[in-house]
């Protein structure tokens, strides 16, 4: 299979969801449990794909580095956010290259973002809390033409869900439950 992706399986899925949009509905979730200090244990929750559940057996740790008062047991929340963007872009490049018929030899993405922590700390009202900018650099090599790679790059900009979520913003609602003390 080219690039390790079954183009036939992809094509069949495309036609399935053209017929039945319900099969394209995907719900995701993660749960974070505070462990100590800035450290959390993340557990992926069961997904729903179409009409069925999909168990997810994945856990990871998020922490802050020591200079930011953590114990450095795992990547920090910013790195996890950037990797969520990069991972989604990578899927789109790999899938898109396979659709175009390109055999990839290299696909590398670097994602960088800058924060001014004065925003989080609230010490300077003019400083934005959010990332000022997120930038990514994609390195592609393979048997595609320059035009094909540029087409792929444009398509990924339009089709990557995580990219689009960050670029456009999505409604975000937080709810609070105050539980009884243990």
């Amino acid at each position: 299979m080219k690039n390790g992706i079954s183009l036939s399986g992809l094509s069949e899925f495309v036609h399935e969801v053209k017929q039945d949009g319900k099969e394209a509905q995907a719900s995701y979730g993660v749960q974070l449990d505070w462990q100590s200090g800035t450290r959390s244990q993340v557990t992926a929750l069961a997904m729903q794909l179409g009409r069925h559940r999909l168990a997810r057996e994945f856990q990871w740790t998020i922490d802050e580095p020591r200079p930011l008062l953590g114990q450095n047991h795992g990547p920090n929340p910013q790195e996890v956010l950037l990797s969520g963007l990069g991972g989604c872009l990578l899927v789109a490049y790999a899938v898109g290259a396979s659709v175009l018929g390109i055999q990839l030899e290299k696909l590398q993405i670097q994602v960088r973002g800058n924060l001014d922590l004065r925003g989080f700390l609230g010490v300077e009202e003019q400083v934005p809390v959010a990332f000022q900018e997120i930038e990514y650099q994609v390195h592609l090599a393979g048997d595609g033409s320059r035009e094909q790679f540029e087409h792929l790059h444009r398509q990924v900009e339009r089709q990557s869900p995580n990219r689009m979520s960050l670029a456009q913003g999505v409604p975000l609602r937080g709810h609070l439950t105050i539980e009884k003390r243990l």
Binding site: K2, L7, S8, L10, S11, E12, V14, H15, E16, V95, G96, V99, L100, G101, H151, Q155, Q159
Partner: peptide, 17 residues
């Protein structure tokens, strides 16, 4: 059917189950 390699994006693929 072949899926039709060389399509511009996923929605142009041809193979059905």
């Amino acid at each position: 059917q072949t899926p039709g390699s060389g399509a511009s994006w996923c929605n142009r693929l041809q193979r059905r189950r």
